[in-house]
Design a protein around this nucleic acid. Sequence first.
DNA 1: GTCTATAACCTGATAGAC
DNA 2: GTCTATCAGGTTATAGAC
Lengths: 206, 206
Amino acid sequence: MGKKRSSGSPDDLSTQEKIKEAARQVFTRKGYAATRTRDIAEEAGINLALLNYYFRSKERLFHEIMLEKMQQLFGHIVPVLLTPGTTLEHKVEQLVALYMEMLTANPDLPLFVLSEIRNHPDQFASTFKVGDLLRHSDFIRQLQARRPDIHPLHFLMNLMSMTLFPFIVMPVFKAIELVDDAHFHAMMQERKTLIPMWIESMLKTR
Amino acid sequence: MGKKRSSGSPDDLSTQEKIKEAARQVFTRKGYAATRTRDIAEEAGINLALLNYYFRSKERLFHEIMLEKMQQLFGHIVPVLLTPGTTLEHKVEQLVALYMEMLTANPDLPLFVLSEIRNHPDQFASTFKVGDLLRHSDFIRQLQARRPDIHPLHFLMNLMSMTLFPFIVMPVFKAIELVDDAHFHAMMQERKTLIPMWIESMLKTR
DNA sequence: GTCTATAACCTGATAGAC
DNA sequence: GTCTATCAGGTTATAGAC
């Protein structure tokens, strides 16, 4: 029985996993360019050289984390949109609830992923070629059936906007003292039921 | 008559202004941390030393650009929200039209400003303390009159979300080949009239 | 596997000639 | 004002001892 892989206890992770966890935190907090490998090593409680021993370079480590985070932010959306046999309303409710829960636990995930995708344009371009998959999804079909007069992407955009954007703009709202943390979380809880209601009302408006 | 300040002709800007313009482009495209002063100098067609001659450091130059960009992104919103004597609908239409026009010309403005505010938390925190100003604005009062049961910030959040977020997520949508440039611009044009309609329908939904 | 020490490189900023 | 050359400091990555 080696000293690694005792996957339950709090501080007893393998060194590799300690580094990854530190990288997750530092990268998402400061972004790739502003992160120094020393920060990650310090946060992980290990030496700098170990980082290069396990992962060959800063960029490779970042790449691993980035794929994880993209999966975390976008991975859950596709299965829901593709699921046949559920109503449009149900899909919307499920997506909003899913995102609100995940974003409350990871508030800076969207800003991190979206800005890093912009900063490394082609590096992550073809990672998920889900364009066609989405275009022929059950969700899009249902939207088109309800509103043939409006491009279905508008509604998907609205759903994502109203759900994700608050977490992106939150730093500003807090900076100008428009909300505090408690206030913000309360609002996000309210939005879990409000957003599906609003989407529904948009679909009805003629 | 010195050789500077002939403010009309295309390439005849003062050196200082050439550097600022280059900084605007490079900073907004790559962010503060990923930008090298050499990039800016090259983009401006001047020498690196000149950058430090006119602006004392990378950080000071960035600070100037950042204030400009924050003003550009948020400065227009407050006057509209405060204006008395116009209907709620009119304010919404005006805001959406204003943003759509400005963002079409500067698509990467929102992602830049929002991520840099996060990266420099306190540096730009107290720059615009418009929290109180907003809370007592005509706009908020009108929202409260229409829907005393829902916090007015929800509607402001929705307005900003549906307007700004598409420009933030656009790089992703293009990467997964869900839209191309032409398609995206067409959608944004449609949203100029759709968003006010949707906001109106949200206000009516009970 | 983990550490210390250091190499190799890059970046912001300045000195000094013109 | 503008340039070339260079410094000082910091950063990634590796060599080599344990």
